[in-house]
Design a protein around this nucleic acid. Structure first.
Lengths: 196, 196
DNA sequence: GTCTATAAATCGATAGAC
DNA sequence: GTCTATCGATTTATAGAC
C-alpha cells in the first residue's frame, strides 16, 4: 500500500487557483497575503503561480469581477424590473442575499476593498453604481407612498445596504439559502426587532 | 515675510501620533501602511516614531483599546441596566451609534480587524463578548414577549449588529449626532422601509 | 526628541533549466 | 506546467550622533 502512495501533484487550472487565492485573501487580508502564501496554499511554487496569473492584482480583479457580475445580474432579472418599487426592492434584497451566499468568498472580498490600487478603485466605483441603483428605487418607493412617512430615503438606503451586506460576516460558505433571503427581507422591511 | 516663515516642527505627543496613524490605517489599510507612511504623515522620521511607540502593532493595540473601551462603557451606563429588555436594547443601539460617531476612526479600525496578529485576535474576542451581551438581551426581549412572534433571536441579533456597525461606512468624522442615534434605532426596531 | 545610516528579512516579479 | 535561483525594491526595526 505504501509503495503505491504517490505524492500526486494536483493539476491546477486558473479557476482552482483563484479559489485558493480568494480564501487566503479573506483569512489574512489582501495586503497581508504574499505570493509566497498563495503558492504554499496551492501546493506549487511562486513561479508556477505566475505562469497562471500575471500577479497578485490580476487575481484580485478576477475575484472582484465575479462578485460584481453576480450583484448586477440581480438588477437585470425580470422580478427586479416589474411591479411596484417596494415589490422590486423586496426582490432585490432577497436576490442580494442569495448571490451573497452563493458567491460568498468573492462578495466578501468585494466588501472589504478600500481603493488602494487601480483595480480596487474600479471595483469601488461599480459597487457605488449598484448602491445608487438601489437607492434610486428606495426614493421611488417613498415618493409612491409605499413607505411609512418619516423615513428619510438616503438614510434608509444606506442602512438597507449595511444590513444586507453584513450577512457576509457570519454566513457559511455554500450554506443553505432555504429561507434566509426572505428572513433578511422581513427584518429589513418590517423591523429587525418589531414590537408585538 | 518669507524670512520669518519658519518650518515649525510640530511637537508630537503619543496621542497626536496615534491619531495620525489611525487615519493612515483607515485610508490605506493596516497591513498596507508602512512605518515610513506613518512617519511621513506625522512629519517626522521613522526613527522618531519608534521613540514614541514600540512598533506598528503597539499603535494598533492602543487604537483598538480606545474603541473597545467606548463600546463597553455603553453596557455599564445606567439606562442600559434598567427597564425592560426592549427599552435597554433601544438605549444600547442609540448609544452604540453615539460612540461610533464620537470615536469614528477607532471603531472603524476595530470593525476591520480580521485576527492576523495576537493583538487582532484579542480585539476580536472582546468584540465577540460585546456582541454576545447584546445577543443575550435580544433573547430576553423575545422571551419577555416584547418582540413580534416569528423573529428568530440569533438572526435578529446578527442583523442588528450589522445594521448598527454599517454606520461607520458613511458617517462623517466628528459629525453631528443630533438625531442619528434615534433614527438608526427607529429603523432597527420599526423597519428600515416599513409599509404605511 | 529628532536625525542619518543601515541591518536583516521579506516583498512582488523574472530568468531560464527541465 | 513546474522547478531553482535570484534581482531590486521595500519592510520592520535598531544603532548611535546631535
Amino acid at each position: 500500500m505504501t509503495t503505491g502512495a504517490r505524492v500526486r501533484r494536483p493539476s491546477h487550472g486558473p479557476g482552482s487557483l483563484l479559489e485558493v487565492a480568494v480564501g487566503e485573501f479573506i483569512t489574512r487580508g489582501y495586503d497581508a497575503t504574499s505570493m509566497e502564501d498563495l503558492s504554499r496554499a496551492a501546493g506549487i511554487t511562486k513561479s508556477s503561480f505566475y505562469h497562471h496569473f500575471a500577479g497578485k492584482e490580476a487575481l484580485l480583479r478576477a475575484a472582484l469581477e465575479r462578485a460584481l457580475d453576480g450583484l448586477f445580474s440581480i438588477l437585470d432579472s425580470e422580478a427586479a424590473r416589474t411591479g411596484s418599487p417596494l415589490h422590486r426592492l423586496r426582490h432585490i434584497v432577497a436576490g442580494q442575499v442569495e448571490v451573497l451566499v452563493a458567491e460568498l468568498p468573492y462578495v466578501t472580498l468585494l466588501l472589504r476593498v478600500r481603493g488602494n490600487t487601480e483595480t480596487e478603485r474600479w471595483a469601488l466605483e461599480r459597487r457605488r453604481e449598484f448602491d445608487a441603483r438601489v437607492a434610486a428605487l428606495v426614493r421611488d418607493a417613498v415618493e409612491a407612498g409605499e413607505i411609512r412617512t418619516g423615513v428619510e430615503p438616503a438614510l434608509a438606503a444606506r442602512l438597507l445596504s449595511g444590513l444586507v451586506n453584513s450577512v457576509v460576516e457570519w454566513a457559511r460558505p455554500g450554506g443553505s439559502t432555504t429561507n434566509l433571503p426572505a428572513a433578511v427581507a422581513n427584518a429589513a422591511f418590517e423591523g429587525i426587532l418589531p414590537a408585538p
